[in-house]
Design a protein around this nucleic acid. Sequence first.
DNA 1: TATTGTTATACTCTATAACTATA
DNA 2: TATAGTTATAGAGTATAACAATA
Lengths: 149, 149
Amino acid sequence: MQPLRLNEFLPYRLSVLAAVVSEGLARSYSEQFGIGVPEWRVMATIGEFRSITAKAIGEHAHMGKVKVSRAVASLEGRGLIQRTQNAEDMREAFLVLMPAGDDMYRQIVPMALGYAETLRAGLSRDEVAVLDQLIDKLMARATVMPSAG
Amino acid sequence: MQPLRLNEFLPYRLSVLAAVVSEGLARSYSEQFGIGVPEWRVMATIGEFRSITAKAIGEHAHMGKVKVSRAVASLEGRGLIQRTQNAEDMREAFLVLMPAGDDMYRQIVPMALGYAETLRAGLSRDEVAVLDQLIDKLMARATVMPSAG
DNA sequence: TATTGTTATACTCTATAACTATA
DNA sequence: TATAGTTATAGAGTATAACAATA
């Protein structure tokens, strides 16, 4: 049987890397702004699109509707975002950043971009490009794969 | 302000990729063998070293002592592993796979390696090598980084 | 005093499904 | 019937610290 060395095993390596990276960034914005990963992803998505429904956020930020709903409720309760029902389909609402949310967003974005920049700082321009391609390819494979075994 | 597009943001991309990859693999062994990620990591580490303490497992598999302790208790309760106190330091115990655990391990390893192989199947030999280097570099950066901002 | 490992506590997160309102 | 979104429930996972045993 082929040996399996955990520290050379791709799924394990990706999992640990993502956890370390995610925790490093999340610690910053959770300490400074008191929000968690789901709230950050919702704010980032609203900030990116300016006005968007909960469903579209879930699709864009890889979150289920329950998680989106709870993050939205939390952000709305803190006055960071506002929802306005769509008059043409009263089931859904458009979400936008309130001034306080926009302030926070404008503080988090440079910090987050700086974090990603620092991460990439050890890589050459070519390596950065290859990294992005590799992530895309692996995502495509992993998404299509039925399951192992 | 520089825009932040979530789907181009490295920490987010790594997080989603790792989650998709990890879930695909974990679904297989959880359905077939009824173990979760911590149990799999403990078994993989014992299988790799044949005999090892809980503390060393935690260091090797990036798990806290509480998580290791609970995974070990679960695996021991199912007769998959056995612990033997170290006569030279009675605080710790060496863990080994029992026959049933070894059987399971020998079924999971080829499946897990096959999964990783399928993941990499779309990559060239060069890309695989670069990927491993990139993960190492990013891990080193992320581990050293104090926090963002 | 420090270390290995376990247990307790409270807390958070999650998955599922039931539910409301609207289409 | 189907969809957008919320709420309920229960179960799993987590962090922290307290704890026992040993060094």
